[in-house]
Design a protein around this nucleic acid. Structure first.
Lengths: 234, 234
DNA sequence: GTCGTCTATTCTGCATGCAAATGATATGAG
DNA sequence: CTCATATCATTTGCATGCAGAATAGACGAC
């Protein structure tokens, strides 16, 4: 269960120390957090994690600093770390931000997407269409992330891509509390149809607008689902 | 000399551990990097910095991880850290990104700016106008940052503000290699006039467009200055 | 029964110590 | 003289140890 679907996002890291222990822990801990093993707002006991990952506190603490910078956890001086709480108000901000980034991505990708980018996106889009009917939320989410990542990649701006991926990782946690709704996935796929149409036509402004709309709807849906699910903040 | 102008940006941090040693080092090291004391691409010897800041290696290394995540330095496994090199290609990406963020900021701030925000921006803008004639590049840069920060703050999206500030901090390093050109400052101030006019009128799209243009011009100017200054990458 | 205070335990933050990896220097072969 | 190799010094990465803060619990006052 905790293994779940593999998200390509999780393999990458801003810190390229892929061989070192603390870098490994950053990745592992991110997975743990994204899988919701540690509920939102929960205290993060260093000792427990040290036993779990079989490392000493030094590399673990280094990893915690990185994750705090990325916004996954909060560091309270002398009072331990906690998993960053999911704040309904912040959700609005997060999706507004994501919409803004995707607007930029759309404006750029419509012009700069290479042949490979387009083929890749068409492929993912097709797979997304095939999946959608089977209503497999987890797989859909993973593939959906891949689609938007591909689009961001087509913007040919590494900084924009990195910022976007970072935000996506943070948003990935939300899927745990909202429990994907098949009806919403249908709506989401319809949005994607429009997005692909605009991309194929190279319609910059149209593509950007569709992405903004897509995210606004998405944000509202997530917020609604979160509020309906009550205070089950786990 | 190293003290120079105080930038409000440097006092804030994503990591709120303001009392702890490693958080202090993050701030101090950021100042050192932004002041260009360590040239771009230079190796960062842990021992030297430990002596300089009078701390042991543990908190220093934690700070390095944070700064690497923020993009100020690069961590090479077992080979030490280096100051993130300034890549002309990346400069284009950075300003494109900044333009995109400010476009969002403009769209939001035009609608959401409070009375206080507007008063604050008018005040900064006025001071900027007074300074401009005296041609004091350092002070102009600092005040300019304050202006754009104030605009970002008026977007009422903390996440957007944080992302923007982070990017600004990275860009701040560039002022060292480009050596502000008074003529460009004049042009910059003219842009600001237009920006303020749009803000006063609540003209969202106009404000956003002006900000995008402002950043495109800025990026081109910085890139030009960088190339002209040759390979003086320090 | 409730609140405030004091004490003990746990946990955090930092300094130090040690092993492994990297880079530099010296030595020798060609 | 150039290049390859071996040895050594430096530096990084991690584990451990210790001091101080924070939390929990007991005790006593009201």
């Amino acid at each position: 269960m905790t293994a779940g679907t593999e998200h390509a996002l999780l393999t990458g890291s801003a810190v390229r120390n892929n061989g070192t222990l603390h870098a490994q822990i950053v990745r592992k801990l991110r997975v743990v957090l994204l899988n919701g093993e540690l509920p939102s707002g929960a205290r993060i006991p260093e000792a427990d994690l040290c036993r779990r990952f079989q490392v000493s506190r030094t590399p673990l603490r280094e990893a915690l600093k990185v994750l705090a910078t990325e916004g996954f956890i909060e560091l309270r001086p002398n009072r331990g770390s906690v998993v960053a709480p999911i704040d309904p108000v912040e959700i609005g901000h997060v999706f507004e931000m994501k919409g803004g980034l995707e607007q930029q991505i759309g404006l750029l990708a419509a012009v700069r997407a290479t042949k490979d980018d387009r083929v890749n996106l068409e492929r993912i889009h097709a797979r997304l269409g095939a999946l959608e009917t089977r209503e497999d939320p987890a797989a859909y989410t993973a593939l959906n992330q891949e689609f938007h990542h591909g689009l961001a990649s087509a913007s040919k701006n590494p900084l924009l891509l990195q910022t976007y991926d970072n935000l996506q990782k943070r948003i990935l946690r939300l899927r745990l509390v909202v429990n994907e709704d098949p009806a919403r996935l249908d709506a989401s796929f319809n949005d994607h149809e429009g997005i692909m149409t605009a991309l194929r036509a190279g319609a910059r402004l149209d593509l950007a607008e569709r992405l903004v709309d897509h995210n606004r709807v998405l944000g509202e849906a997530v917020l609604k689902a979160l509020l309906e699910s009550g205070d089950r903040t786990g």
